[in-house]
Lab assay of single mutants.
Amino acid sequence: NITNLCPFDEVFNATRFASVYAWNRKRISNCVADYSVLYNLAPFFTFKCYGVSPTKLNDLCFTNVYADSFVIRGDEVRQIAPGQTGNIADYNYKLPDDFTGCVIAWNSNKLDSKVSGNYNYLYRLFRKSNLKPFERDISTEIYQAGNKPCNGVAGFNCYFPLRSYSFRPTYGVGHQPYRVVVLSFELLHAPATVCGPKKST
């Protein structure tokens, strides 16, 4: 009989979030998941669920729940959905087409922007091929755009693959930082360890 609440607040209220290319994953298990708490945590810009209804979450049980978190800019949030393409979905964080879970995003301009520009958040701009779903690539190998090998040196047709967002508070919403948490629900042929409040007794 599990009584402890799932530590969603640790994920959502973390002081620092990860850069999207090096997104963070927390496995959540053996706890009571009260998803209604999430609705009250922040004024969400996005709370979209796929393959599951957000209002039914509190009635369900899962084997595992994974919470992935990272920062992107406002106009990239739409890429965090099944079947999307674009720089983020292709080279940084890719959801599977049959994704079961929820994408939660909110504006973090007050936390993640600086007047002089916050350069701490990076994204991958160049990659030889698209990522597979939930693949994480943290390599910093020089990207070869031409025929000549780069031998690890940046220059003509040889690019450092990561680029930094420079978040400034005066930017338009599309270029402001957004914190994203992706909850993916895993149903294996194994005992369910993460249940809503109704199912945990």
Rank of each mutant, 00 (worst) to 15 (best):
P96E: 03
C158D: 00
N118R: 04
N40Q: 12
G174N: 07
S116H: 12
D97K: 13
Y123A: 13
R163I: 15
Q144T: 07
G117M: 03
T15K: 13
R27T: 13
N58R: 12
P133C: 04
F17E: 03
Y143H: 07
N87T: 15
N120Y: 12
K110A: 10
L95E: 00
W23L: 02
R16Y: 14
S69C: 05
F160M: 12
N58I: 08
I80N: 00
F17Y: 10
R78M: 09
V173Q: 14
R136E: 03
T170K: 06
I142A: 04
Q144Y: 03
R163T: 15
C49W: 09
S166C: 04
F156W: 07
C49R: 03
F45M: 15
R127D: 00
L122M: 15
T193V: 11
D59V: 07
C102L: 05
P7K: 14
P191C: 09
A33I: 15
A67W: 09
Y50G: 00
D98M: 09
L131I: 13
K132W: 08
V32W: 11
K56E: 13
V153S: 15
I88E: 00
R136N: 04
N120W: 09
V173R: 13
K110P: 08
A67I: 10
L122A: 13
V11D: 05
P177C: 02
R73I: 00
Y39S: 15
V71K: 02
T201Q: 14
C6I: 05
K148I: 13
V77Q: 05
D97L: 13
L131N: 03
F44N: 14
N109E: 02
F45T: 15
Q79V: 03
I80T: 02
T46L: 12
Y121V: 05
Y178T: 07
D68M: 05
G83T: 06
L60G: 09
S184W: 12
H189P: 13
T193W: 11
T3A: 11
K198Q: 13
R73E: 04
T100K: 13
C158M: 01
G74V: 02
K128W: 07
V52H: 09
T140R: 12
L5Y: 14
V65L: 14
F8H: 04
C6D: 06
F12N: 04
S166W: 05
